[in-house]
């Protein structure tokens, strides 16, 4: 939301590419998806993969406050001052879409406290298939589903599956055990997404989060270009 003029003091609006001091802010990427699909594990893997070359911070939106933040802390993927938990009043999708004020404060506080940052990952609490991030909060969004949640999810569509900038189909190693057809998921996803990219991941395999990390690097290159 731009009003076409600037103010003194703290930023009044959300999607400005520059901070009040004129420097470029960090690229913000949102991660959403159903409960248990591997959002937090993907965030952890991305941090491990990217943290040596990039300055990263994470905002979590737990349903029960600090669970996801604590997971990231306990796995020591980032120092504690780089992880902030936002409380969402039982509605994580409200905090990432309808009223983004608490999340915006979290990303601004992180830039103030540990910046300059290259990348801020904003993780939604596990929610339904309609949960999407506001463009006032993030520059791009990843929707994470998994093969064990049913191979009909790409066919069913919904805003997360159809509009996310990247769809991640996680836990591909489980496909044979849960009877999920990866080819069918890929075909359905392509049909629903009109050419937007899809990444199949198995965080336990050697390739791990690689395809997602490559996509993040490309977004970052475009952001800083």
């Amino acid at each position: 939301m731009h009003l076409g003029h600037t103010h003194d003091g703290p930023a009044a609006v959300s999607a400005d590419a520059t901070r009040p001091d004129g420097t470029r802010r960090a690229l913000r990427i949102g991660l959403g998806g159903p409960v248990g699909s591997g959002k937090t594990a993907t965030v952890a893997a991305l941090c491990r993969e990217l943290r040596d070359r990039l300055s990263i911070a994470v905002v979590t939106n737990d349903i029960y406050t600090r669970e996801d933040a604590d997971f990231l802390l306990n796995n020591a993927v980032l120092p504690p001052e780089r992880i902030q938990a936002v409380e969402t009043g039982a509605c994580p999708h409200t905090a990432i879409r309808d009223d983004i004020s608490a999340n915006l404060e979290a990303v601004e506080d992180l830039e103030d406290a540990v910046g300059p940052l290259d990348l801020i990952l904003v993780e939604s609490g596990g929610d339904n298939l309609t949960a999407t991030f506001s463009k006032g909060l993030v520059d791009a969004q990843i929707f994470v589903i998994d093969v064990a949640g049913g191979d009909d999810i790409p066919r069913k569509g919904g805003p997360g599956v159809t509009t996310a900038d990247l769809l991640v189909v996680n836990k591909t190693d489980l496909a044979p055990y849960v009877g999920s057809d990866l080819e069918r998921m890929a075909l359905d996803a392509e049909k629903q997404r009109g050419g937007l990219p899809v990444a199949f991941t198995s965080l336990t395999s050697a390739e791990g989060v690689g395809p997602v990390a490559d996509w993040v690097r490309a977004r970052l290159a475009a952001w800083t270009a």
Binding site: V86, E87, T88, G89, C91, T94, A95, D98, D99, I100, S101, A102
Partner: peptide, 11 residues
């Protein structure tokens, strides 16, 4: 109640 000023997260 939809005015986006953070109230939804408070009881």
């Amino acid at each position: 109640g939809r005015f986006p000023a953070g109230g939804h997260a408070h009881s």
